[in-house]
């Protein structure tokens, strides 16, 4: 199961306010309709909203925490908090962007409070990973340790990600993993595009240093 494909593969032309990774079918108007119904206590409508965005919200939190259980708790709490705060949602942004901000803020607060790094609890790789041409080429041609397995590579990659600061990890997660544009990342992180670019460059440099043995 591919959790987060780049935006270019899924959405041809995303709406201005909607992140690129959002599902292509639901229009913002439909989201607003569901939000209005959820405000009136229609839990079925809110269930539909949760189903629409649960995978990407979970994936973002998971990539930030590298822990399935933490990601599960935080994602659920983010949706519950969003439901409780529905009255404050004015519709200035899409529901997806709004709930995304809630999830990101909740995750960053959690990571700040988590003093010591907890053990990673990684999700399994899906069947498609072994056949991903990029990964196959990376392992067979460029990696000096050609005997390395995907599972080991996954563990090293997640360990390197955890060494980044939260803002740098978030930028890499949203842009390089989730496939969002700089503008969308800046919108979610509430900063300008220049900051996003500089953070992305620095984070990539850091990651490159950590993973140098697996890149050349």
């Amino acid at each position: 199961m591919i959790m987060a494909e780049p935006a270019s593969r899924k959405v041809s032309k995303p709406p201005t306010d909607q992140p690129a990774g959002a599902p292509a079918t639901p229009a913002p108007v439909e989201d607003m309709d569901l939000v209005k119904r959820a405000r009136r206590g229609d839990l079925g409508a809110y269930d539909e909203l949760v189903r629409r965005y649960q995978e990407r919200i979970y994936a973002t939190i998971y990539h930030m925490t590298a822990n399935h259980e933490d990601a599960n708790d935080l994602a659920q709490e983010a949706f519950i908090k969003a439901f409780q705060a529905l009255r404050s949602f004015k519709g200035g942004s899409s529901f997806y962007t709004w709930v995304y901000r809630i999830a990101v803020n909740k995750t960053i607060n959690f990571l700040k409070q988590r003093k010591n790094k907890s053990q990673m609890s990684l999700d399994d790789l899906d069947f498609h990973a072994e056949h991903d041409p990029d990964l196959v080429a990376l392992i067979s041609e460029k990696t000096p340790r050609r005997e390395v397995s995907l599972a080991e590579l996954q563990e090293k990659l997640n360990a390197a990600m955890q060494k980044l600061s939260e803002p740098h990890r978030l930028v890499v997660t949203l842009h390089d993993v989730q496939g969002m544009s700089h503008e969308e990342v800046a919108n979610i992180m509430d900063c300008n595009i220049g900051t996003v670019r500089s953070r992305l460059f620095y984070a990539r440099q850091q990651l490159q240093g950590y993973l140098i043995d697996y890149l050349k």
Partner: peptide, 22 residues
């Protein structure tokens, strides 16, 4: 190369049926 390596993270998936329960 790093971006190719990062694409590995897109293949990380929770247990089957997880999102049905979520």
């Amino acid at each position: 190369s790093l971006r190719c390596l990062l694409s590995l993270k897109r293949h990380e998936a929770p247990p089957p049926g997880y999102f049905d329960r979520f």
